[in-house]
Nucleic acid binder design. Sequence first.
DNA 1: CGCTGGTATGTCATATTTGACATAGGCACT
DNA 2: AGTGCCTATGTCAAATATGACATACCAGCG
Lengths: 110, 110
Amino acid sequence: MRSDKRRRLERAGWRVSNTAEFLGLDAQEQRLIDLKLALAAGIRRFREKRGLTQAALAKQLGSSQSRVAKLEAGDRSVSLDLMIRSLISVGATSADIARIIRRAEVHEAA
Amino acid sequence: MRSDKRRRLERAGWRVSNTAEFLGLDAQEQRLIDLKLALAAGIRRFREKRGLTQAALAKQLGSSQSRVAKLEAGDRSVSLDLMIRSLISVGATSADIARIIRRAEVHEAA
DNA sequence: CGCTGGTATGTCATATTTGACATAGGCACT
DNA sequence: AGTGCCTATGTCAAATATGACATACCAGCG
């Protein structure tokens, strides 16, 4: 998956021959993944707290059970947009969301 | 909701056709929009603090100046994913991002 | 055992988001 | 007047995310 990002960058025009810069991107990608995983876990926590099934949440969202399952699994195919939308739909306040994100920072240490 | 806010939204392409519809916007959708606008403003703040141009940030992101401009305008065509990616790229920590999101809550009026 | 309700995983056509590009506006300076 | 630099906005083909669907997995309960 890393080489795929690199190819994308190279196709986009800027040379990515600078390894340090490339690894820097990789680290940022990792932080985004950590964030998504934290949000995914948060969605599940809130959903269960609300006593909702994945299908019920999906209905609220205008989505489907399978997508909610992917959401909570932190699947590569789900966007942050859908994650935040889900958190809002499941009753999380901005403060709740902020808390989840702040908590993800724990994994940021070099 | 004040008209300056509405103007901001319209400028960003959030199709707000009349006052009734504006006031009738689904509350959850409204919260997501508020979140995005807060993040957009945050990106600009961090970028400027770093002394980066839109083009420079675009290069870091593997994106283009025009997309960064849309990002900071809170344009409807930009995803939360790209926003968070940008914040990370521009040096925001998870705590910073959390702070921006928590602050977005202030605008929640009914 | 079978059955039911919940969850996981894969696929796919469609919808949305993307970087790139063109181009315009603004602003400072010569 | 012009030149250079930064930002805004619109368009479009290609990339990515989407809901829907099928299907499998996994309890718990009879």
